[in-house]
Design a protein around this nucleic acid. Structure first.
Lengths: 164, 164
DNA sequence: CACACATATCTCAGCACTGAGTTTACTTCG
DNA sequence: CGAAGTAAACTCAGTGCTGAGATATGTGTG
């Protein structure tokens, strides 16, 4: 499955480093897809998306935050965070509050019912994630975290040129 | 960033295995997002989505295939593959052909212009991916691939019960 | 203070995709 | 052969999200 297909040899064989990078990218995408699929199915039982759950979870564990903080944390666009908080607010799970000292900004926090929901479903969800990652042993998870962090650090903020 | 927040200790502290799994999932999602962001930006220069590029790339390296084969390979829904091939066909990059021996099925293959496009942009794209993964050394990439495959194997087909 | 610029949120049109259901064709098996 | 079951592709209404631009506020400089 990974060896070059002898029936159609690519004309421009990329160097080994590049080929390895491509294979890593594919493995990353497939692994992500597998876990995301399970995570999505699990939160869907409570009529939530993964992003919505992410907001709830962040607020549960870190307390009220600026919308922009949540946005950075769960990696959605500015429009996305407004949309997500709108939905959670409509369902009575979260609420906006004014930010003392900055009238542009708004805080989001969980309502009592939001907090109760997270308390109830978070452990289940965590168990689903644990099962989804059961293919990795404890030490392997630690290795994976290390490698993924290294990958992220290298990919983080490099694109804009090298030296201004 | 990883140690428990002393200001709001979670009431139900998940066992270490679960906590590690959650951290791995977050690292996986962030790493995936970082690479996907770059990949998306790169293919957008040619007015393509990552999924469209995936189709083109698969056809380029493996030759014509059933729609359903491409679908499995690039992980989209049945509606998705129809949509993607429609778009590529409208742009003259790919074309459907009848499948000899099965009149339900259709093959997709690249047109001459599709093949030319991939030949031209694939090396650039591969280089973008290589750069995005530059945070990992050669051996680290191999380790990452191994771990991600193990993760996938463990997450693959487990959810439906344990023993029928 | 006036001006330029930065920052936080919101608006909203657009879009790539999903997934349930449909159609058509292949495959068994009696 | 006909019925039942499976499989491949397609249809299409629905959706979660993006990203450019708008609005309002904050911040720094002369």
């Amino acid at each position: 499955m990974n060896q070059p297909n002898p029936a159609s040899p690519p004309r421009e064989t990329p160097d080994e480093e590049t080929a390895l990078a491509l294979r890593t990218w594919i493995a990353l995408a497939r692994a992500h897809n597998a876990v995301a699929t399970r995570a999505t199915a699990d939160v869907a039982r409570h009529d939530l998306t993964v992003a919505e759950f992410g907001v709830l979870e962040a607020l549960y564990h870190k307390g009220p935050m600026l919308l922009s903080e949540v946005q950075r944390r769960i990696l959605v666009s500015s429009g996305g965070i407004t949309y997500l908080v709108d939905r959670l607010e409509k369902r009575g799970l979260a609420e906006r509050r004014d930010c003392p000292g900055d009238r542009r900004a708004r805080l989001v926090g969980l309502t009592a019912s939001g907090e109760e929901l997270v308390r109830r479903i978070f452990p289940e969800h965590a168990a689903v994630i644990r099962d989804a990652l059961a293919g990795l042993g404890r030490e392997e998870k630690r290795q994976a975290i290390r490698l993924l962090h290294a990958l992220l650090a290298g990919a983080g903020a490099e694109p804009p040129s090298e030296a201004a």
